[in-house]
Design a protein around this nucleic acid. Structure first.
Lengths: 142, 142
DNA sequence: GCTATTCCCTACCAAACCGATAGAGTATTG
DNA sequence: CAATACTCTATCGGTTTGGTAGGGAATAGC
């Protein structure tokens, strides 16, 4: 299961992408519209800002907006930022490769072989789907 | 990331499947061979037994063996047993469907649309790969 | 029929993680 | 200059994770 936080992050980004193709929204506005606890959303948006996915304007008529085009933000990037590696095993991760503590021979590991397929399939979806795709996805058949 | 426990469970099952196509092994033997903490493995095997995946023999020359053919135990079944639903969202789970707390319209949820694809792809792998496949998988190209 | 061996079961535990909440600080603008 | 909105750090209760501990019950071999 993905974390609640990742779900919130994606929902907030979709809201920003919908908003006039990248217009500015205030935290409170997103929070209300998407039913996300405000203070929690604050932290999430801050994290997305540090990752150069959104930008912010402080002060009286401030708010958040996408820093890039909706078509240039993938679900994979957001998931990795918030929930960490997409691969179910450290030895299959691109961004955080690590040998499994107890694995003697990585090439012979049957578990790894199977989950490599899972990982490739998952990445194929998440790294190719952008916010722009998401908001028009209703029409496209699976 | 999948849990350590699920990794142990699958490794133990693969060991049992390899063992003479379903021969009996003692906990200690699996534990040593696979470098799995013995008492933890005990709990895992017990759980697999309750799920009718393995069977046990108590007493002096006891041990564990697969209850079914290696070709009749899928990775998906084991993962669901140990780690719970495969779907990353409760509203996409087969075994534990639940509406997302904060979701107003499931059919319109963009997040759901994307992760439905992920789920289908993951299930396609895990529900079609068995222990028998795993131990001969080295030869099959991805 | 005893006893060593093996599985069975329940309880417990420390550390990490999750999903927030609190509150004080810093820009910006009307 | 004050109201408003973002910024940052700390804290917190509850759950999950990855084990460990220890006694009980069955069974095979002598």
């Amino acid at each position: 299961m993905m974390s609640q936080k990742a779900k919130y992050a994606l929902r907030a980004l979709v809201a920003l992408a919908r908003s006039d193709g990248g217009g500015t929204m205030m935290i409170g506005q997103i929070s209300r519209e998407q039913a996300i606890p405000k203070k929690f959303l604050e932290q999430i948006l801050l994290e997305l800002k540090r990752a150069d996915i959104v930008l912010s304007q402080r002060g009286r008529s401030g708010g958040y907006a996408l820093k890039r085009l909706p078509s240039e933000v993938t679900f994979g990037e957001v998931m990795r930022l918030i929930d960490g590696p997409i691969a179910p095993l450290p030895c299959l991760s691109k961004i955080a490769y690590r040998k499994c503590d107890d694995c003697q021979d990585e090439q012979a590991c049957e578990i790894r072989h199977v989950f490599e397929r899972v990982t490739l399939a998952t990445r194929a979806v998440l790294d190719s789907t952008t916010l722009a795709d998401a908001i028009t996805l209703e029409d496209i058949p699976v």
